[in-house]
Amino acid sequence: MYSNFLISNEVQFWLFLTAFIPSVGCSIFVLYHLISNRTQRHAINNRVIIVLISNNLIYELIDIPLFLNYYRLEAVWPNTPGLCLMWIFIDEALYSISTVVLAWASIERHILIFHNRWWSSTRRRRLIHFIPLVSLVFYIIIFHTVFILLPLCENTYDYTQELCGHKICLHNTKIVGTWDSIMNDILPTLIIVGFSIALLVRVLLQNRRVHQHIQWRKHRKMAIQLLSISILYSLLYIPIMCIVLAQLCCISQDSGDIFIQYGRFFSYYVTFLLPFVCFITLSKCSYKFKDMFPNWHRPARLIHPMPLPMMTVAAERPNIM
């Protein structure tokens, strides 16, 4: 499966490690900033970001070390079915949670910005915000628990490949494999792209209306935040989603494998880059970072010339003889 992959395991190890360490640090800092501040923690637009970053951090702390260990040893260790099931579950479930949650955020941002009256009561906030978000997360966890951790068939694992060969037996069932690819991967990605483009168009039209300029400034940060994250997902996920969709309907499974290998490898950089995109779009983060490390941003001392005190010298009168 990976014979044509031109990036060696050693290079993959260092590419992941050099991105993994700063990404974890940035994730912890962004979460600390959002959770420690009561105003930031209770802001509706930040709750999706907290879910995304938390899910992303768990993914990094469990999934990425397993990849690093595989690249270092060039084999899965310890080579047990339990480790393979856990690795595949984390990789599949947390990946789908990020994609589905961001797809919902792409829809929710339209409501937050252009229909903010819908949030006027606690009942509406629960109905529109909490219930869809919690339901989507539970759906992904239950789906992958049933079809990965509690399989009705026997899986076979290849301990010489990353993710133990990745395929599980229920993926061979066309209905399950097609549902997983379309509903958990392709459709959320299309929603992210479609609603992000729609948000950008509505933002540009809104910005041209002079009488709504003050109201728009209040929501500009939410729009920029979503668009930045959506661009990151689109650039790194769209290519692999297009190939998977083509394999489902048009081309053979083997014809796009080499492109999926490269697309899958570089799609992990969404995980590495997401905390930095969130850090940049959270304006108050940079100020808190400066407060935590004041010596890093200490302004240079300027030396100003000091005026000397004026001295009055009285001229002596010459003696006239």
Results as ranks from 00 to 15, higher is better:
R123V: 03
I53F: 00
I64F: 04
A103W: 08
A105I: 01
F130S: 03
V51S: 09
E154K: 14
I97F: 04
T80I: 06
H115Q: 06
L73H: 15
V51D: 02
T145P: 09
L61W: 04
L112C: 08
K174F: 10
M86I: 15
V51T: 14
L112E: 12
E92L: 00
L133C: 07
Y159L: 13
P132K: 00
D91M: 01
L163H: 12
L94Y: 10
L85F: 15
V134T: 05
R109N: 14
R117F: 11
K174R: 11
S121W: 07
L52E: 03
N79P: 13
E162H: 06
N55C: 11
H110Y: 02
G177V: 06
N172Y: 10
I141T: 04
H144Y: 11
I97H: 03
I140T: 13
G177M: 03
T178Y: 13
C84K: 09
C164I: 14
F143V: 08
C169N: 07
L133E: 08
V137Q: 13
I111Y: 08
F67T: 00
P132N: 01
R125W: 02
V146E: 12
P151Y: 11
Q161T: 07
P65G: 07
S120D: 07
H129Q: 04
F67Y: 15
N116T: 05
L127K: 02
I140R: 04
I182K: 04
V137I: 15
L83W: 06
H166T: 13
A93Y: 00
V146G: 04
E74F: 07
Y139N: 04
N116H: 10
G82Y: 05
S98P: 00
I131L: 03
A75N: 07
T99V: 10
N56G: 13
L152Q: 14
L170T: 12
M86Q: 09
T160M: 09
L68H: 01
T122C: 04
N55K: 00
K174L: 10
F147T: 15
S120F: 03
P65N: 07
V76D: 00
I53Q: 08
L150T: 15
W77K: 06
S98R: 15
L150P: 05
F147Y: 15
T122H: 05
V176N: 12
L133M: 13
L149N: 08
Y157R: 04
T145I: 10
I97N: 09
R126N: 15
R126A: 03
S54R: 03
L83T: 06
I148R: 10
L94N: 01
P78V: 00
T156G: 15
G82S: 14
D91Q: 12
W179H: 13
P81V: 06
Y139R: 06
T80Y: 00
G82T: 12
V146M: 09
P65V: 08
R72S: 10
I113Q: 02
A105G: 12
T80C: 00
F143I: 02
I97V: 15
I128H: 00
H171Y: 06
I142F: 07
M86A: 14
W87P: 14
V176H: 06
Y139H: 12
E92M: 02
